[in-house]
Deep mutational scan, measured.
Amino acid sequence: MFYPNSPQTSPQLTQIPYGQQYAMMQRQIQQPYHPFATTEPQARLYPYHYQGPIQQEQGGFITQQSTAASPQYVQMRVTPVDQSIMSGYPNQTANGSSSSSFNYNIHPQQQQQQQQQQQQLRHHAMPVGSVPLQDDRYRKQLIVNYLAPDVTSTDLHELFSRFGELDGARIIYDKQTNMSKGYGFVYFCHAEDAKEAVERMSGYEFHGKWLKVGYSTNPLNIVPSNSSPYVHAGSRGAAG
């Protein structure tokens, strides 16, 4: 039997160049792979992502010199942007860049009308829970959420009447099932009393439920100042 490094198959040491006398086997001759043993700084910083320098080929596509990437890492192929796409944008300079302001050559009167329309939209648009300043009635009506099913309009009136005089209180019921929808409205005579009720009743436990109280901004629920107070009856038909 002959071994790869046996004296019968191995040459004389004098015939082997210096430095390879003890590297006779194939696994010894093959050098191990060192990912950080390279002179390129990109490979030292990113050993798993770097795959060699990027070269520009004919046709405008950018390719990489090395083989496919590892399945664990996804390499994105980048193509140059066609400058003709950006030619339609206004205020574009000769080098292809555009300024931040756009001039669509709008007539001054049209621009003024658009600004007025935007101001009107901001004036009428009102986020949930906010209180408008032009109508004091919005500051007097509250919406009470997360009410228990057994709470009546009379219970709601008695709960909030300790903060001040009320114009009314009612629970909203479903017309088909005649069941409470879980929320109601309270109408105060003074805005200061309503503000105190919002601050003190939010998070209050009532009939096993934690109440959420806020201003009601729905104009359909506003009680006119010259109208008669609501009837605080315990029956659902009268309260709904």
Rank of each mutant, 00 (worst) to 15 (best):
P4R: 09
Q117E: 08
Q42R: 04
Q113C: 10
G96R: 05
R27P: 09
P35G: 13
M76S: 04
K212I: 03
D150Q: 13
P90W: 04
L156A: 09
D193Q: 10
Q113N: 04
V213T: 06
Q141I: 08
L121R: 03
V128C: 02
Q115K: 06
A197H: 04
L121K: 00
L159A: 12
A191H: 12
P219V: 00
D174M: 01
F36Q: 12
I16C: 14
C189W: 13
R44E: 00
K175D: 14
H123W: 13
G237S: 08
A191R: 02
Y104T: 13
L211M: 13
C189T: 04
N95W: 04
A191G: 08
P90L: 09
D150Y: 13
G60N: 10
S228A: 10
P224K: 15
Y204Q: 11
R44K: 06
S225F: 10
Q64I: 14
M179L: 06
A125L: 07
G214C: 09
Y183Q: 12
H157T: 12
S99A: 14
Y183H: 00
H124W: 15
L133C: 15
P90T: 12
Y73G: 10
R137W: 02
F163S: 07
L156F: 09
Q115I: 13
Q113R: 08
G168M: 13
Y230C: 01
A233C: 04
S161A: 09
L166E: 10
Q42W: 12
V78E: 09
S66D: 05
Q55E: 08
P132D: 02
R236F: 02
A94N: 01
K140Y: 00
Q115F: 11
Y138G: 08
T177K: 09
I54G: 14
E205Q: 15
H207R: 09
S84V: 05
L159F: 00
Q12N: 01
S227W: 01
H207G: 04
V74R: 10
Q119I: 15
G88I: 09
A169H: 02
N5K: 02
Q21N: 03
A37I: 14
F188P: 14
P4W: 07
Y73L: 04
E165A: 12
A197V: 08
S227L: 08
T154F: 08
Q21S: 08
A148K: 14
A233G: 11
R44D: 13
Q115Y: 10
N91H: 08
R162K: 14
K181Q: 00
Q116Y: 02
K209C: 06
V74M: 12
Q15D: 15
S6P: 02
V131N: 04
Y50W: 12
M86C: 11
F206M: 15
Q65P: 12
G96P: 12
Q21V: 11
I222G: 00
P11C: 06
T63F: 12
T38P: 02
P71M: 09
A194N: 13
Q110T: 03
Q58V: 08
P47Q: 09
K140M: 01
P132V: 07
P224C: 12
G88Y: 14
Q30W: 14
F36T: 10
D136W: 00
F185N: 12
A197D: 15
R77H: 00
Q30A: 15
N178P: 03
N226R: 09
Q75M: 15
Q26K: 08
P32Y: 01
I29F: 02
H49M: 14
S235H: 10
H207K: 02
L45A: 09
Q30C: 02
I29Y: 15
M76K: 05
G129M: 00
S227D: 13
P11E: 07
N95M: 11
K140A: 10
T63P: 07
D135T: 05
M179H: 01
C189N: 13
V186Y: 06
Q20W: 15
G59K: 09
V131E: 15
M25R: 09
P219K: 04
V231I: 13
Y33C: 05
E192M: 05
Q83W: 12
Y48C: 09
H190P: 11
Q83V: 07
K195R: 08
G129H: 09
K209G: 05
G88A: 05
I222S: 11
T152E: 10
G129Y: 03
T154W: 09
T14G: 11
A191Y: 00
H124R: 00
V131C: 10
S6K: 01
R27W: 15
H207I: 08
Y173L: 02
Q116N: 00
G52D: 03
S97G: 05
P71W: 14
K195C: 07
Q116G: 08
Y146W: 00
G234F: 00
G237K: 09
T79M: 00
S235M: 00
Q51Y: 15
Y18M: 15
P229H: 03
V78H: 07
